[in-house]
Design a protein around this nucleic acid. Sequence first.
DNA 1: CACCAGTGTGGAGAAGTTGTGAAGGCGGTG
DNA 2: CACCGCCTTCACAACTTCTCCACACTGGTG
Lengths: 226, 226
Amino acid sequence: MKKVLVVEDELKIARLVRDYLQQAGFAVVEAADGRTALSMAAAERPDMIVLDLGLPELDGLDVTRRLRAGSSVPIIMLTARSDEADKIVGLELGADDYIIKPFSPKELVARIRAVLRRADATLGGGEMIRAGPVSIDLPKRRVTIDGTDVELTATEFDLLITLARHPGRIYTRAQLLDSIHGVSFDSYERSVDAHVKNLRRKIEPDPTRPRLVLTVYGVGYKFADA
Amino acid sequence: MKKVLVVEDELKIARLVRDYLQQAGFAVVEAADGRTALSMAAAERPDMIVLDLGLPELDGLDVTRRLRAGSSVPIIMLTARSDEADKIVGLELGADDYIIKPFSPKELVARIRAVLRRADATLGGGEMIRAGPVSIDLPKRRVTIDGTDVELTATEFDLLITLARHPGRIYTRAQLLDSIHGVSFDSYERSVDAHVKNLRRKIEPDPTRPRLVLTVYGVGYKFADA
DNA sequence: CACCAGTGTGGAGAAGTTGTGAAGGCGGTG
DNA sequence: CACCGCCTTCACAACTTCTCCACACTGGTG
């Protein structure tokens, strides 16, 4: 699930946007002024930011500038004024899109989705995870062990990248369920075991004696470090 | 140097836009009505089109529709009306952006640059895509398999180039919908399947056993790599 | 060295995903 | 205004994967 930071000082609009975005399936965090926005952006690491241009004190342009200094998080600008200077500066500064008030929530959601997908598409420039003999090509969802291809199901793949992203770090079954499903239903935690079993069958030389995906008795699983 | 086709029936505005664009380093060709616009678009192959919504006879929406039937040239819509229905319809039809009159030439230039940047990023700048037995001529929108021509609809073509541009890379149905329509509202994701089916019928030697456009179970589709 | 919660299986049924034909709609064309 | 091509949507079957269970086994603990 994607997390959106909404920065808006007018309470009514903020609430409207929040409700609509949540209904559309986004996680929403909020800030009412520029300074809070910057710290929220750092703390929450949202997938994108919806930013009101007309904030008190530190306005939308200032916020954008400072964000861009250290991040390329997608930004959609909300503006009441339709005069061009703001728009242009906004685009030049790196806002990805903007919407003029009054806008419809539906349009906002459509734009957010478009911007997020564009961002996703750009990102995939060959991201790889390497851990021991395992290489994982994220955009292609391809896994090789010592150079030979391995076929994984979608779930097995998601499980593997969660573990392999931080070798040595221990994950509980609940956390692994989360990484597989996005949301954690209170489903049978031990279905994780089944996926670990299947995954081991495919990537372990000897599934009886795992060397990559290791059990941490009483806690969960981890990927082998070092 | 980028070539821009300006379609505007009001002479004063047309002249203003032309002068400003030329000063900004674009080559400009002009049309004063929809019919001329279509033939100019075909003859001049502009890098993008600035299109007035309120044209006599064949209006901006009609022109966009017809253009989109055989091309994905970026379009910016000029409109005097500001009600959102038009905006959304415009976007659904495949306009890449729109500007409400009165606008400043400066803003127009900024938007054109933004849209062109986006288009370049997507297109990768190349004129041809070659992937296995498939050759795709982007400007002519022509596809050949092992040298023999294949007739594709506009949608099938857009789908194919999206996939073929990065062989092996996996795209979700939502991403593919985006590449087909500029902005995707929540339409039925599985219409992508229908287009894939039709595409396979046309480009696969044996559509039952696809070798080019491959299904990634639980994720989406990809073009065959290696 | 017994105990028992925690873990490793195999497999059956449930759940989800995709392929496909066919129907309906919309706009363009003659 | 009937036709035609294209896109969307639906329904169903075929298929793949996931979940869940039962039972065996293991590793820690006193």
